[in-house]
Design a protein around this nucleic acid. Sequence first.
DNA 1: AAGTGGTCTAGACCACCTC
DNA 2: AGGTGGTCTAGACCACTTC
Lengths: 252, 252
Amino acid sequence: MENGRDGMTTARTDETAGLGLRPLYVQVREKLLRRLVDGVWAPGDILPSEMQLAAELGVSQGTVRKALDAMAAENLVVRKQGRGTFVARHDDERIMFQFFRLKPDAGERKFPDSTILSTGTFPASAEERRVLGLDPGARVIRIERLRSIGGLPAIVETVILPAGIFGALQGMELPNNLYGLFAVNFGVVIMRSTERLKAVAASAQEAKLLSLAPGAPVLQISRIAYSLENQPVEWRISTCTSEGFHYSVDLR
Amino acid sequence: MENGRDGMTTARTDETAGLGLRPLYVQVREKLLRRLVDGVWAPGDILPSEMQLAAELGVSQGTVRKALDAMAAENLVVRKQGRGTFVARHDDERIMFQFFRLKPDAGERKFPDSTILSTGTFPASAEERRVLGLDPGARVIRIERLRSIGGLPAIVETVILPAGIFGALQGMELPNNLYGLFAVNFGVVIMRSTERLKAVAASAQEAKLLSLAPGAPVLQISRIAYSLENQPVEWRISTCTSEGFHYSVDLR
DNA sequence: AAGTGGTCTAGACCACCTC
DNA sequence: AGGTGGTCTAGACCACTTC
C-alpha cells in the first residue's frame, strides 16, 4: 500500500495530509478502537495477527505492536503468547478486580450477589441529565438492588441508565454482572469509570436493608462509567456498610 | 563488553548463568532502580543518555529505552524530549495528583495546610509492628496534625513512622509535604501506597477539630506507603470531613 | 550545529501454543 | 511443524532543546 511511509531507505514524502501529524501508532490504535466500537470484533474474539494487521494497514509490525501494547495497557485487549491477541472480556473475574473495590476486612475477596428491589423508567432529573449528558425530555431506567457478600447484606445500590440506549433492558432478566450484559446485548463496553466517595449517615430505609442502626455511618460511592467512545453511560450510587468491609485502592 | 548477547548474526551463548532467564530490559530496569535506591542519582538529577547507558551496560539503545519507558510508567523517572531523562521529583504538585485524592465538591483542587498537634516517639504497638514490619521492641514516631483546605479544617491525621529510619526527624521543622522531606533528608522515596477507606462516626475530639457534630459520619483513610525497595515505611490514618469534600478515584 | 528522546522500520531469535 | 506474541538489535529520520 502506497502511503508515503517506506522506512529507512527513502526520504519521507510528507504528504500525511492536513492534521495527520499524530504518530502512526496512535492512528493505528484509533483505527483498531473504531473497529471495537463498531462491533467488528466482539469481546472474546481473536484479532488478526500483528503481521496481518501490519500488511492490511500498510505499516510495520513494530508499529502495530506498539498500538496493541497501548491497548493492552488500557485493558482493551489481552495478549497471550503463542496464541494471539483477544478483545477483552467483561467476565466477573475482571470486573471484580477492576471496578469492585469493596473487600472484607479479613479473609478472601468475594463477588456479591444481587437482589432486585425495583426497576422502572422515569423522566430524567436535571442532575441525571447533567451527569449522563442527556437532552431535556430524555428518560432513564432506574434499578434498585440489594447486594450481599457472603450472605450478609452489604450494599444498597441505584443504577441509572439512559433509556435511549438501554430501553430494551426493561423486562430482561438482570444478571449480577451488568457490564457483561451491556457488552453482549447492547454493544456497550465499559472502559473506565470515576468514583467519588463520601461518608454519610444511613437513611432509615438503607439502615433497615443493611441491618444497621438508622444514622449509622456508611460509604456512599457515586460512580460514572464511560463507554469505549468515552461517553458516560451509567450513573451508579452505592451505599455500602463499613461493618466488616472497606474500600481498597492502590495509588502508584 | 562481552556478555553473550550479540544480536542477530550469532547464536546466543546461553551462559546467562543460573536464574538469568529474565528479559534483558527487566535486568536493566533493576540495575537502574538499584542506583536510584542507592542514591547514585538524586531526585531531579538528569540520567545519562540512552546511548551512554546502552554502551555502559552492553545492551542496545532499544533495550535501555524499554527499561526507561517502564520506569516512566511507574512514575520513577520523567522523560523530556530534547532534554533528557530525569529522576522524578516529589514536589507538591506531583504528590497532590498522585496521593492526595480529597477534592472539593465544587471548585478547584487545592493543597491542604498543616498544623502540628503533637509529635513524639513511643514503643510500637503490636498493630504498628505488623503494618510496618517492625521487630519487637521497635519504636515509632507519631505525628498528629490538623489539615485545612481553603481555610476550613478538613482532615485530622496521624502519621506513624519507624523511629529506626526517621529518628532524626524529631526536632526538625515539619513541612506540609512530608514525602519531599523523606526523599531529601532520609533518601526514602515513596513509590506507591495502598489505601483502605471506611465510613466511621467522628470521635468527640475529631468532631471538635473538624467543626462537626460528635458522631458525624467521616471518611477514615488508612494508608500504607512503600519505599522504592517496596518496604512499608509510613502508616497514615486520615479522618476526613465529608462536608463539601469527596474522595476521588479513577478506575481503568 | 549538536545532542536528546520519539517514531518507524527491518530482521533475527526465543518461548509458547496448537495441530 | 508452523504460527503467535515477546525480546533484542540496528539504523534511519523527526521534533525538540540547548548552545
